[in-house]
Design a protein around this nucleic acid. Structure first.
Lengths: 203, 203, 203, 203
DNA sequence: GATGAATGAGTGTTCATTCAT
DNA sequence: AATGAATGAACACTCATTCAT
């Protein structure tokens, strides 16, 4: 039956909220959104599942907040980089760098984005995913085109396809990159940039 | 030859079975394994959900069969290519080609693999995913090392990391590549090979 | 998350369905719609609550079917009576008679209607309640006006108000009339008709 | 006079209490007791649901107080009328008049009584509903019998049944009578009295 | 007098699965 | 091969209530 919803739900970012968001992000990223139950989240937070609803309106709202926070911060960083108006080489380098930094510092948010965005995008209330993703793509394509225009990028490259390959290999690394091993976000950025710039062939 | 009485659940690939597997693969790939219900599958097959259990032992068994069929055929193709003992350039070219062909011809199986393998891998009965993936990785690394050994690949490349970038960008294309557009599996292969060989910089 | 709903739900009026509808009607009528849980209904039917959903899409759907069935049958009877084109006295007598017969024979449906219609009417999917009620009111008003026109009813009567008093006293009797006591549906009809016709004063 | 320490929960009718009682009565009457949540009440009062418990011991206690206040005031008025020892005609007229006045002035309390008394009556702590209702019925029956005894009411009338018809049509009007339309409590009283006295037939 | 966080039981509903027919 | 009815556990969510602050 149709229910109205009053207030009684915190909006301000209390510590408890942030803690729950972090827990949920981790579970969503590792077990999948659908497979993660609100009881899983509540258990990990040390409260009962019903108590989650004191902080969030729904399971969807939790995922929404995780993704929105991540995408907004990423887009903000991207736009700051673009606004600096550096040369293409520097700009792309910075885009790559903040991306790997996000993978390192917001692993679970990126994991959720990488694994579930396609599905969540189709759900009402998650339209922002498509919008932010489009903004990100536009920024990348703009730089790649600028590079092509000024002759530093090969003319024959199909930019939309190129972007997709770059995007997928970059962000998919969230699935296998774990800090503390051979790589840091910085060395990964360098490796990645070297690879897409010069390819794998000798000479 | 002695014919033992068959199992309760048919193993022989009847048309109905194949049809259901195809339906399930499509739903698993597009809506996710957890989000797809056996009723969704049965609805699309025009039967009641309970009737599915005449053909398959469980929902997991359906996913298992889809993935196993795909991975076995892919590994078989990979091993045939390696067995041909061509030069590295040709071998890698063939590995890429059959991969994009699989993406084109077995889109849903690849989609399921790409989206859910990480999760399913942890479930009992799905150990083969890890095994087949390891075999695929071994084949690729073997070729990359061979290329490095004979001087056609840059010495400084970190091969495990390189492999991951190649793998992720290649297989992720199942999410955006739709036959009938700018690309075919063949042109995508060519574009991809060109990109990873020479990178994006001019000169 | 938005769910699609396939078939897998019986529509044809099986015995089980009818039995469940009767149980639900009784519980709705006696304990109230909101206070009756699907588990209450299932318990009385001797099944688990989840099994109810093999027969009905929702708790609302059960209430809807009970009310719709009752209102459609009542309106059909009313319209048959009107179609007979008897004189006002006979027509009104018949309207009263079938109403008390419904109270006797479909006590629980009438009880649900009497106690919860006002609330349910506001819920989506229950618009038919208002429509049927309006049809019933129109039929009554038509007869009352006919009576007034031909002089058998007092001219000074405010018909809409009169109708409401008649309607409320008639249908409210579902709350206290229990067959097997002093009254039958027929004697109640007679008592009621006598009362509204002649009032309570002597002479 | 010795002042004992008050109970934890205030009993004295503070403004806040009265305001909350009015809000609750309105919600109970319009949405039903079970369907109204304490949060609904708190929202409307501009406080959090937990804060209600500073004023009332429970949701039931709120409904109890609304109903008890109404029933006590009604019975008091009824008894005052009876105590005046007027003739039957005047007494009944006064009973009707104060009833419609209550419907007009305490609409929500009457609405709660009319819609939920049957259900609440069965709950522990609400036994007073049955008691007060019995007192009301006794007063009415006493007057009706007095009327019959002195010959002003028809002898053939079945008084208990008559009472129920009168009671139901009278109090049910809370569902449709809204001040400001064609009727006031006074004209409704007159209309009602005229109807039950003389019936609907001409002559 | 009110808040904010939580409880614990319960609500309608879903879903993989079973099985007699 | 399929149906129709059911299970049993789980699910997201609600709600009256408590209580330290």
């Amino acid at each position: 039956m149709a229910r109205k919803s009053g207030p009684e739900r915190r909006e301000h970012g209390s510590d408890r909220r942030k803690q729950i968001l972090a827990i949920a992000a981790k579970l969503f990223a590792t077990h999948g959104y659908s497979s993660t139950t609100v009881r899983d989240i509540a258990d990990e937070a040390g409260i009962l599942s019903g108590s989650l609803y004191h902080h969030f309106a729904s399971k969807e709202a939790i995922a929404r907040e995780v993704l929105l926070t991540f995408l907004e911060s990423l887009v903000a960083q991207y736009e700051e980089i673009v606004a600096a108006d550096d040369d293409v080489r520097t700009t792309v380098e910075n885009l790559v760098r903040v991306s790997f930094a996000a993978i390192q510092d917001q692993t679970d948010s990126v994991g959720l984005y990488q694994n579930e965005a396609l599905f969540l995008q189709t759900q009402p209330g998650f339209e922002f995913i498509g919008e932010k993703s489009a903004r990100i793509e536009a920024i990348w394509l703009e730089q790649l085109r600028r590079g092509q225009d000024q002759g530093s990028l090969r003319e024959t490259l199909d930019l939309p396809t190129l972007y997709r390959f770059i995007r997928d290999s970059l962000w998919s690394s969230v699935r296998w990159y774990h800090p503390g091993g051979r790589h840091t976000a910085d060395t990964l950025s360098a490796t990645f940039l070297d690879l897409i710039r010069h390819g794998i062939l000798a000479d």
